[in-house]
Structures are given as structure tokens and as C-alpha cells.
């Protein structure tokens, strides 16, 4: 692992009367992948949105490569080019072709020439295996393809870190695989990633640490192995059991379906 890329120190955030984050701290090293999980409403998404300052935290500090990004002096537009974001509902620009979704940031923000931006965008689309779909509009693509365009859009800006906000939870089960495969490839190529997901298989494959958040605080953290073998708190155990039931690998379910398994 390289140097500390991202340091989040005691971040608090509330929306009106609702306290969403109550002092969350975590570090992310260069080329590192960490997974955040927990029940809905626990503050996972809010944490990501604090990191790229879409919802600035009320309290606490966030450092990117040693620079405090939560001070008012920071140019947020420049900052956000260094922090990529992939959204649960893709949020593709509906009026632009896949290639233009990816190149618009290069054109408008990095001021690349049309030609340069186009080439860079094709490269990014190639990394998510969508070059042949470059001229399609978002509405002409499947959910999985749309999310891969979303990933390419973030990649093209060459950010220091990419934040994934439940990138597969709006997808049909059949389409989740292609997105996870792209994310695995990125992780193996050394992309620094902070991923909110419940895909335990993905976490086991690439995460150096998993962080369980509930009601705005970190309940438990550890390696994927820690969570699969010996989770400590009852809240985590309950949550993991529910996930197991959901994905059909829980013992109770297995007993019921043993007959089928044999065939």
C-alpha cells in the first residue's frame, strides 16, 4: 500500500433535525479498496457525498493527499475532478451519447481539444468494454451498460480516488456481474476505490477492509475474512444473516433445498 490518500476525521452531518453521521473516521491509502456496508439510512451515501463535498460535512475534517478539503478556501470544482463518483442510479446525461457523457468533463473542465477528449473518452470506454456502444444514447443502453458508462465518465477524469455509491443495487441480477467485473478489473489495476455495496463476493475479492456503518457511526471494521468468520457485534451478525437469506446461502434455506442441490 502507498501513502495515505484520503483521511476522514470525525465527520458529522445532519439534515435538518436528522443526525445522519455522528463522527465517522477512516483512512484510505493509495491503490487501496475499502468497502462500506450497512442498513439503508445508516449514512453510507451521505458519507460519500461529504467526501466530494456535494453535501459538505457540518463538523470534522477530510484530507486529500494531506490537504484539508473542508476549508472554505478550497475550489470545489477543481477538487471534484480529483474525486470520481459513481451513482446508484447512474445519473447519465440523457441528451448525450455514451462517448459524450465521458468526454464532456474533459472538454468543459479540463479544456481538452475535441480530438483529445474524444480519444481519452474512447480509452475510458474501452476500459469498461463499451467502445462499440459509444454512439448510443443512455436510454438505448441496458442498466449495466449505463452504469459502466458512469464508471467510464469518472475514470476519464483520472481522479485520485473513485467513490461508488451502491453501483449495482439498481440493477437486475443478470446485469450486476458485468459491472462488478469492471470494478474488479479497476481494483486490480490499482485504482483507489471507496465502495458502498452489499456485494460480499466483490468485497472478499478486493477489499482490504470492510466498514459496517449503522445509525451514523462505525459499528465494526475488519478484513472481509473477519466478517465472514467472526463478526463481533450482534447488529452485524443480524445484518449478515439477512444478507445470507437474501442471497439464498443461509443454512435454513440450504436445508430446505438440499434435495435440489443433489441433482
Amino acid at each position: 500500500m502507498g501513502e495515505q490518500l484520503l483521511r476522514i476525521i470525525d465527520v458529522w452531518k445532519s439534515y435538518e433535525n436528522l443526525q445522519v453521521l455522528k463522527g465517522v473516521s477512516l483512512d484510505l491509502a493509495e491503490r487501496d479498496v475499502k468497502v462500506i456496508f450497512g442498513p439503508s439510512g445508516s449514512g453510507k451515501s451521505t458519507l460519500l457525498r461529504c467526501i466530494n463535498m456535494l453535501n459538505p460535512p457540518d463538523k470534522g475534517e477530510i484530507y486529500l493527499r494531506g490537504n484539508n478539503i473542508t476549508t472554505p478556501k478550497v475550489n470545489l470544482n477543481v477538487l471534484r475532478t480529483r474525486i470520481g463518483m459513481v451513482f446508484q442510479h447512474f445519473n447519465l446525461f440523457a441528451h448525450l451519447k455514451a462517448i459524450d457523457n465521458v468526454s464532456i468533463g474533459l472538454r468543459r473542465v479540463k479544456k481538452f481539444s475535441k480530438q483529445e477528449a474524444h480519444e481519452k473518452a474512447l480509452e475510458a470506454l474501452n476500459r469498461v468494454k463499451l467502445v462499440e456502444w459509444a454512439d448510443h444514447y443512455p436510454a438505448q443502453l441496458s442498466g449495466g451498460q449505463q452504469q459502466r458508462v458512469g464508471i467510464a465518465r469518472a475514470l476519464a477524469m483520472e481522479p485520485d480516488v473513485i467513490l461508488f455509491d451502491e453501483p449495482t443495487s439498481a440493477l437486475d441480477p443478470e446485469l450486476i456481474g458485468e459491472v462488478l467485473q469492471v470494478m474488479l478489473d479497476l481494483a486490480k489495476a490499482g485504482t483507489t476505490m471507496l465502495v458502498v455495496t452489499h456485494e460480499m463476493g466483490f468485497a472478499r475479492a478486493v477489499a482490504s477492509e470492510m466498514i459496517f456503518i449503522d445509525k451514523g457511526i462505525i459499528i465494526e471494521r475488519g478484513t472481509p475474512n473477519h466478517f465472514s468468520v467472526s463478526p463481533e457485534s450482534d447488529r452485524v451478525k443480524l445484518f449478515l444473516t439477512q444478507l445470507d437469506v437474501l442471497y439464498g446461502s443461509h443454512k435454513k434455506l440450504l436445508n430446505d433445498t438440499e434435495e435440489e442441490e443433489k441433482i
Partner: peptide, 10 residues
């Protein structure tokens, strides 16, 4: 989409 645009620095 507005948030997505801002997330790439626009």
C-alpha cells in the same frame, strides 16, 4: 444529472 456534472468538476 446536475450532481453528476458537478461530481466531474463542472
Amino acid at each position: 444529472q446536475l450532481e453528476a456534472a458537478q461530481s466531474i468538476g463542472m
